[in-house]
Design a protein around this nucleic acid. Sequence first.
DNA 1: TTCTCATATAGCCAATTGTCAATATGAGAG
DNA 2: CTCTCATATTGACAATTGGCTATATGAGAA
Lengths: 143, 143
Amino acid sequence: MSIRDYEQAMKSVADPTRMRILKLLEGGEMCVCQLIAVIELKQSTISRHLLLLKRAGLVKERKDGKWVHYSLDGSNSSRYARKMLQNLKGWLNDDRIVKKDRIREKIARDAGPREICERGMTLPMRRTATCCPAPRKEAVGTR
Amino acid sequence: MSIRDYEQAMKSVADPTRMRILKLLEGGEMCVCQLIAVIELKQSTISRHLLLLKRAGLVKERKDGKWVHYSLDGSNSSRYARKMLQNLKGWLNDDRIVKKDRIREKIARDAGPREICERGMTLPMRRTATCCPAPRKEAVGTR
DNA sequence: TTCTCATATAGCCAATTGTCAATATGAGAG
DNA sequence: CTCTCATATTGACAATTGGCTATATGAGAA
């Protein structure tokens, strides 16, 4: 409980990507693969952020077979982490990015870890450019 | 009031040097020269930190002749800044560095901006290694 | 055992950050 | 006006950080 812990907690929550992870976990624990699918950053990047959040006492992990689920840490090893989690719950709920993440979060939760992983860490979306590249037969050259 | 403001406020308070400045200002407004004398970093460095704190809505300035006094910003342009100032007041009061700063803070406040500036941004201290370098005659080579 | 797959870790690169030295600004003194 | 001095700003540098690719780990399946 020194400056070191303070700095670790504050720098952890200050990063926008880690803040997004924390806001997602406010809705309950999530599998790493689900976080990857929602945030759309590389697996190693998400993994690294989760490590930092864990070190700061902000999240905890639960291993379940080959999956690892993360959730907000209620045990609160750090008073700074505890307070910041509390603050965050009332913050940024109207933010554009956070709201967009919440929509994707719902899709990821509905699908579950298994389907997300099977799809290669992507969400099952309807009408997405990357997912359904419009297999029209003769759409090109109809002009 | 977006992620941008959030990030600015959080990153501002996360830095240990800026945290020290905020903890000093909890005791009331201070002149830039006093902050320099207490923290012992170069004038340009302190000035830059103050700029970042001001941008984040954490501190405000008051110009008084050739001196500039900074204080915690009660007007609170940023909700994040407001909350973090409140949090900080209950945090780190037992920290070694913060306590040491408080001792130097008292000396700086007692002396006032004028004397601090006249001394070249240093504190009037008795028995300090840097101030009184022990003028022993033949301490070297006694072995 | 070996293979697969979800996650973690290592190594690299570009961008950001904290510090200092040098210089600019700007207000009061003369 | 000029000079001085407190502070702000700029430019350079090293250290840190966030992202990626590639590789390692480790558990379940075969």
